[in-house]
């Protein structure tokens, strides 16, 4: 399929290709792939008509930067940047100190929510020839040495704040555990709809933890093998000797094969 070029913008498989440059001095840059966010199911955060879906966002791009770059198309209400296409907003940050996921680098996807419906269309018609500039002297993006120095400085934590957070969390955690315990206690001995009684670890007579099929752990309680007296009967002796010859033969065969392998690898030329 040839790339239909009309009105200066490039459209490939429904995506508008918009080149970006890091700064005005850059000679090359990546391409953003723009498309109107058009998925089944309505979601309050990314309304269907007003949301622009962007692929291949360079790692140093920030929300503010995207907001600035796309504001000529219309007023931007919200910008979301994700690792991969997601519905809804980014997961809320539960904790300042203990993030659940590490911030990942790499190319990302972004959703831009405009105020007006027409803005998405406008964005999709951005020309191919004029690249967008991401970092300007007034609003620079932090990269390289400056970023690393800033990161280093931000590494220190406020002990007081940390202490408070930990205490709060633990309090909540403990009360939650307590509650669970209570609930379990209440549920004790009460048969469910089908008449089964759940036995928990709080039960007086502790039942074994249920393991999934095949997950039975060996507890090192191997049953002692019954010691049978070998060669009690003379046929056993004879049998064992026959077996012995068989093992020798088997080993011999195996060795022969190993040798053949080694021979193939020319392993017997000593020098």
């Amino acid at each position: 399929m040839a790339a239909p070029i009309s009105h200066g913008h490039v459209l490939v498989e429904g995506f508008t290709v918009v080149p970006v440059r890091y700064s005005a001095k850059s000679k090359a840059g990546h391409c953003l792939y723009l498309k109107s966010h058009n998925v089944q199911g309505q979601d309050g955060f990314k309304p269907r008509e007003r949301t622009l879906f962007i692929l291949n966002v360079p790692s140093y791009c920030t929300e503010a930067c995207l907001k600035r770059v796309f504001s000529p198309c219309g007023k931007v209400l919200n910008v979301y940047i994700h690792d991969k296409p997601t519905s809804g907003p980014s997961p809320p940050k539960i904790s300042k100190f203990f993030p659940l996921t590490t911030e990942s680098l790499g190319f990302k996807v972004a959703y831009i929510v405009f105020k007006d419906v027409g803005s998405v269309q406008k964005a999709c018609q951005l020309p191919y020839k004029t690249p967008l500039i991401l970092s300007t002297p007034e609003t620079p993006l932090l990269t390289g040495m400056r970023k690393w120095c800033a990161d280093y400085a931000a590494r220190q934590v406020d002990i007081g704040e940390l202490q408070t957070e930990v205490s709060n969390y633990m309090e909540k955690f403990e009360s939650r555990m307590e509650q669970e315990k209570e609930e379990a206690k209440e549920a004790e001995g009460v048969p469910d709809a089908e008449g089964w009684v759940t036995v928990t670890r709080h039960t007086k007579n502790k039942a074994a933890v249920k393991f999934a099929v095949g997950e039975h752990r060996h507890r090192g309680r191997k049953r002692k093998k019954e010691k049978d007296i070998a060669s009690f009967y003379s046929f056993q002796l004879r049998e064992s000797k026959r077996e012995h010859i068989a093992t020798l033969r088997k080993k011999f065969e195996e060795d022969k094969q190993r040798i053949a392998l080694m021979k193939a690898a020319r392993k017997f030329k000593p020098y």
Binding site: I229, A230, F232, L237, S240, E243, H244, T247
Partner: peptide, 18 residues
């Protein structure tokens, strides 16, 4: 039988994995 046992042990070891 003792003698048997001794000899058997020896052989048993070699045969065990066959």
């Amino acid at each position: 039988s003792d003698e048997d046992g001794l000899e058997g042990d020896e052989d048993d070891e070699m045969v065990s994995d066959s």
